[in-house]
């Protein structure tokens, strides 16, 4: 493996504002997703994910403004999810400046949409977000959930990930609902099980509480690690996660080794 393990902060965006307690010192407006995106970029984030949780349909355009402004200022990949149901929804987000789009409930409702999106834009734009929890009665022991893990979808999570990848998803964003919010570590059993059934990259999410939690997720088979609150509350820095990963022999991208003077010598215009 020579490609670096990606470390990805995730921001929940509601009506154009970041929610879920972001607690950054030195940021005048902690609710401004563009300012936070810049901050995470400067800290060495390899990619950013915005999850649009705007409930009201007629306010959905607010996320497009956020995506536009972010894409103008931050030059790392940007994934946007939330409410994606059709090829048209993807088109609008890509045109606004998203590089990848995450789909969740929309694909459970109509799995063919995965193939439709992949055929139109290529599989590399499509991230299938799978919210999985343990459930007896499922062949694999894991079930897909909706509504933030609260409602079982009656679908086997491993079978769904496998089918999603087969239909054309370019990546699986695996949210472990049992681990989510516990801060006790990633769900290694779930990561290993999904790694076993798909050949797309797997992004592990849910359960991170300290930097030491990240390497085991990669050992279990994750290609990338995603977290929200531990980064927002500065419990763990992106640099600390990378140092931990590098210490265990995993390749990471160390950005910013170039001095500011060197960057300015290239005469970049802002």
């Amino acid at each position: 493996m020579t490609v670096a393990v990606r470390v990805i902060p995730c921001l929940d965006v509601d009506d154009g504002r970041v929610v879920k307690g972001v607690n950054f010192e030195g940021l005048r407006d902690v609710g401004d997703p563009v300012a936070l995106a810049r901050r995470y970029d400067a800290e060495g984030a390899d990619e950013l994910t915005f999850l649009d949780i705007t409930a009201s349909k007629d306010r959905r355009d607010t996320v497009l403004e956020v995506v536009r402004h972010t894409a103008e200022q931050v030059f790392i990949p940007l994934t946007v999810g939330g409410g994606v149901r059709s090829v048209e929804d993807v088109d609008v987000l890509l045109r606004a400046g998203a590089d990848k789009v995450a789909i969740n409930t929309g694909a459970i409702a109509r799995p063919e949409v995965i193939a439709e999106i992949a055929n139109r834009f290529g599989r590399q734009v499509l991230v299938l977000s799978v919210d999985a929890r343990r459930a007896e009665g499922m062949p694999s022991g894991f079930e897909v959930t909706t509504h933030g893990g609260g409602v079982g979808a009656g679908v086997d999570a491993l079978e769904w990930a496998r089918r999603g990848a087969e239909l054309g998803a370019g990546e699986i964003l695996l949210n472990a609902m049992d681990a989510d919010g516990t801060r006790e570590g990633f769900d290694l059993e779930l990561i290993a099980a999904v790694r076993h059934v798909v050949s797309t990259p797997v992004i592990a999410s849910g359960g991170a509480g300290e930097s030491g939690h990240f390497p085991p997720a990669v050992e279990a088979g994750a290609d990338a690690v995603l977290a929200a609150s531990v980064f927002h509350f500065e419990t763990v820095s992106i640099g600390a996660v990378k140092a931990e990963l590098a210490g265990r022999g995993f390749p990471v991208r160390i950005a910013g080794k170039r001095s500011d003077a060197e960057v300015s010598r290239t005469q970049l215009r802002d």
């Binding site: 020579t2 490609v3 670096a4 393990v5 990606r6 390899d46 790392i76 990949p77 590089d99 599989r123 590399q124 370019g170 990546e171 050949s199 797309t200 990259p201 290609d223 990338a224 991208r253 950005a255 080794k257 170039r258 060197e262 290239t266």
Partner: peptide, 30 residues
């Protein structure tokens, strides 16, 4: 594992003009 997605190193010859000043930095592939 495909797609090849993420930041990888590039082995550029010393005479490269394109990579001048980029050191051993990684670039984003997908």
């Amino acid at each position: 594992v495909l797609p090849h997605s993420g930041w990888n190193t590039v082995d550029a010859p010393a005479e490269s003009r394109m990579f001048a000043g980029t050191g051993d930095e990684r670039f984003y592939f997908v």
